[in-house]
Design a protein around this nucleic acid. Structure first.
Length: 587
RNA sequence: GGGGCCGUAGUUCAGCUGGUUAGAACGCCGGCCUGUCACGCCGGAGGUCACGGGUUCGAGCCCCGCCGGCCCCGCCA
C-alpha cells in the first residue's frame, strides 16, 4: 500500500474518492458490528470505519487493533451520516470506509495515554520521550520552534546575514560559567571545552570581514538546572560590523516583530520600551522587569527621614534606603497572609517587612504610631495609594532593598493574579555597569563579558572609578524573562588590554587565553557588536510552556541526566586509558 | 552546597490516631453490542506501598539513611 493522504487532509471535496492513510491508532470504538478507529499522524486525525457487511475479512482483522498500532488503511472517503459530524476535527465531516488494512507494526500498550491534558510524571515522560512527543501539544511546540527558526533564517537572509558554523570543540576560557570539558586523545592531558557561546569566534569572523554573521548555535554551560535552564541550549547568535547599538536594537525589533506576526499573528508595537539598568532597578527592582503589570517600587527615604521609626532610621543612618510599594486592594490580608509576605521578604534577603493598611478611617499598622498620620498621608500620596491598599516597606542597603522589593513585586503579581494572560511585553534594558565587584573573588568581574565595550564617555574612568563605567551592553526582556543580550564589543587592542587589567587578568594569562583575539584586533578589526537570543526561552514563552523542557526534544533532568538514553554513563577502562584519564571515584 | 514538595496497581490519585484481605477512576484482558467519537453494558486480572535499616505485638502511615523527579536559593560573564 502507498500513502495517498495524511490524516489531517480529507475534506468534503474528497468524498467519493479512494485514499490510503498511514498512522497510529489513537482510539478504537468497537460496537461489535461497526468498529471506529481514530487514525492519527503528524497532521491530524481521521475516523476510519470498519463495516462487517461491506468488508467482513478486514473487519475481522480490525478487531485486533490496539492503541498506537501503526497501520495502513485504504478505502473510500464518504460523508458522515447526518448527526455524526465531529466538529472538533478538521476532517470531521468525512470518514474513510476501510476496504484494506495492513498492520505495519503492532504496539505494546503505552505506559501513558497519548493525549494532551493528562497528568503524567515528568520522569516517565522523559523515559518514553518518543511517546511524549506524540502528544499534540509537544508536537505543536516542536513545530513552532521550527517555524520560528524558519522565519528568522528567512528574515536574516533578506538582510545580508551569512550563517556560519563555529567549533564545538574549542578552548576553555576563564570567566563565565563552568565549562564542559572534552579530553584530547592525541594531546594527552589536554582538554577542549564545549563553547558557552560562540563569542570569540564570531568576533574573529568580524575581523575576517564577514560583516554580518548569524548562527543557530548550541551552547553548553555546566551549571545547575532550572525550569528555564538546560546544560545545553540554543542561541540565535548574531554579530555585525560597522553598526551602532541602536541599529542592532531596531534590526532585532524588526526580526521579532516578524516572528510574532508569523507565529502568533500578533503585531508588536515598536520601538520596544527602553530602560536604563538604573531605571529598571529603581522602578522594578530587577534588571529583567516584567512590564505586564505596574506595581512600581518607590523610594521613600527622604519622606521617612524625619520619622521616629527606629528600623527606618537605622537603615538610613547606615547609608541605606527605604523602599515602598502599594498592593492594590490588599488591605484585607489576614495576619497570617502578612506573616507569609514577611517570610517571603526574609527569604529574599530582607531583615523584615513593614506594612500599613490604608482604610477609609485612616491607617492601620503596628508602626502607625512611629510614622504618624500626616507622614503616611504624604507617603500614600507619593505611591498614589487609596483606601483598601496595602503599603509595604523594606529598609536596607540599596541593593538588598531593591532586590527584595523586586522579588515581592513579582511574587505578589503571581499570587494575586495580576499578570494578564496572552500578553507579550518587551523591554530593552541598556546602560549596564561594565563591571561589578565580586566580594568572594575580591576583584572586578565583567557584568556582561570581558569583550564588552565601555561607553566612550566613561572610558577615562576605567582605572579610577570602574564601578561608574557603563557598558555598551543591552538585554532584551520579555515578560520578565531575559531572552537576549548583547553588546558593542571592544575592537581596539589597547582598550581590550585595559579591560583585562581591570579584571585582574595578567598580561601573560590574557595572552595565553585570548592571545588570538588580541592579535586579531591588531589586524584591522572593524567596530562591531552583536546579540544572542535564547531560542528555548523564546519558544517557551510563545508556546505558553511552563518549562524549557517542553520545547526541547530531548531535555535533561535537574541532575543533568537524559532519562531516555541514560547519559551520562560509565565508560570502559580502555577508553579512559586511551585518553590518559584516571578518576578518583570509588565504586 | 542549601531550602521545599513529591514517590502506593500500567497511569493519576485516595488511604483516618499505627490495627482485619491496601481502594477509586482511567487504562488493560475477556464477553455482549451496526453510528460511535470520554461509546455503552457485564465480568476479570493487576501491588517489592521507590529502596535499605530501625521503633513496635503490629508500619503504606512514625524515625534514620538512601535513590529518583520537580520548584527555589547559591551558581548561570
Amino acid at each position: 500500500m502507498k500513502r495517498t493522504d495524511d490524516c489531517g487532509r480529507l475534506r468534503k471535496t474528497d468524498i467519493g474518492r479512494t485514499a490510503t492513510l498511514m498512522g497510529w491508532v489513537q482510539t478504537r470504538r468497537d460496537h461489535g458490528g461497526l468498529i471506529f478507529i481514530d487514525l492519527r499522524d503528524r497532521e491530524g486525525i481521521t475516523q476510519v470505519v470498519f463495516n462487517p457487511t461491506l468488508s467482513p475479512d478486514i473487519h475481522k482483522q480490525a478487531k485486533d487493533l490496539r492503541s498506537e498500532d501503526v497501520i495502513a488503511v485504504s478505502g473510500k472517503v464518504e460523508a458522515r451520516p447526518e448527526g455524526t459530524v465531529n466538529t472538533h476535527l478538521s476532517t470531521g465531516k468525512v470518514e474513510l470506509i476501510a476496504d484494506g488494512l495492513e498492520i505495519l507494526n503492532p504496539a505494546k500498550t503505552p505506559p501513558f495515554p497519548i493525549e494532551d491534558n493528562v497528568l503524567v510524571s515528568e520522569s516517565l515522560r522523559l523515559k518514553y520521550r518518543y511517546l511524549d512527543l506524540r502528544r499534540p501539544r509537544m508536537l505543536a511546540n516542536l513545530k513552532r520552534r521550527h517555524q520560528i527558526l524558519r522565519v528568522v533564517r528567512n528574515f536574516l537572509d533578506g538582510y545580508g546575514f551569512i550563517e556560519i558554523e563555529t567549533p564545538y570543540l574549542t578552548k576553555s576560557t576563564p570567566e563565565g560559567a563552568r565549562d564542559y570539558l572534552v579530553p584530547s586523545r592525541v594531546n594527552p592531558g589536554q582538554f577542549y571545552a564545549l563553547p558557552q557561546s560562540p563569542q570569540l569566534f564570531k568576533q574573529i569572523l568580524m575581523v575576517a570581514g564577514m560583516e554580518r554573521y548569524y548562527q543557530i548555535a548550541r551552547c553548553f554551560r555546566d551549571e545547575d538546572l532550572r525550569a528555564d535552564r538546560q546544560p545545553e541550549f540554543t542561541q540565535i547568535d548574531f554579530e555585525l560590523s560597522f553598526v551602532d547599538r541602536d541599529e542592532i536594537l531596531s534590526l532585532m525589533e524588526a526580526m521579532l516583530t516578524e516572528v510574532f506576526q508569523m507565529v502568533k499573528g500578533v503585531s508588536l508595537p515598536t520601538p520596544f520600551p527602553r530602560l536604563s539598568y538604573q531605571e529598571a532597578m529603581e522602578r522594578y527592582g530587577s534588571d529583567k522587569p516584567d512590564l505586564r503589570f505596574g506595581l512600581e517600587i518607590h523610594d521613600v527615604s527622604s519622606l521617612v527621614a524625619g520619622s521616629s521609626f527606629q528600623v527606618f532610621q537605622e537603615a538610613l543612618s547606615r547609608k541605606g534606603v527605604v523602599k515602598a510599594m502599594a498592593l492594590e486592594g490588599k488591605a484585607t490580608l489576614s495576619r497570617k497572609e502578612l506573616d507569609e509576605l514577611t517570610e517571603a521578604a526574609k527569604t529574599l534577603g530582607a531583615k523584615g517587612l513593614a506594612w500599613v493598611k490604608v482604610s477609609p478611617q485612616g491607617f492601620e499598622s503596628p508602626i502607625v504610631k512611629f510614622l504618624g498620620e500626616p507622614l503616611l498621608q504624604k507617603i500614600s500620596g507619593a505611591l498614589t495609594a487609596k483606601a483598601g491598599d496595602l503599603l509595604l516597606f523594606v529598609a536596607d542597603q540599596l541593593k538588598t532593598a531593591r532586590e527584595v522589593m523586586g522579588g515581592l513585586r513579582v511574587q505578589s503579581a503571581e499570587r494575586f493574579g495580576w499578570i494578564p494572560a496572552d500578553q507579550f511585553r518587551f523591554a530593552w534594558v541598556t546602560d549596564f555597569p561594565l563591571v561589578e565587584y565580586d566580594e568572594t573573588e575580591q576583584r572586578y568581574v565583567a557584568m556582561h563579558h570581558p569583550f564588552t565595550s565601555p561607553m566612550d564617555e566613561d572610558l577615562p574612568l576605567l582605572e579610577s572609578e570602574p564601578r561608574r563605567v557603563r557598558a555598551k551592553a543591552y538585554d532584551l526582556v520579555l515578560n520578565g524573562s531575559e531572552i537576549g543580550g548583547g553588546s558593542i564589543r571592544i575592537h581596539r587592542r589597547d582598550v581590550q588590554s585595559r579591560m583585562f587589567k581591570l579584571l585582574g587578568i595578567e598580561p601573560a594569562e590574557a595572552q595565553e587565553k585570548f592571545g588570538f583575539l588580541l592579535e586579531a584586533l591588531e589586524y584591522g578589526a572593524p567596530p562591531h557588536g552583536g546579540i544572542a537570543f535564547g531560542l528555548d526561552r523564546l519558544v517557551m514563552i510563545l508556546s505558553g510552556a511552563e518549562s524549557i523542557r517542553d520545547v526541547i526534544a530531548f531535555p535533561k533532568t535537574q541532575k543533568a541526566i537524559c532519562l531516555l538514553s541514560d547519559a551520562p554513563s560509565h565508560v570502559t577502562e580502555r577508553q579512559l586509558k586511551e585518553l590518559h584519564i584516571k578518576t578518583d571515584v570509588v565504586e
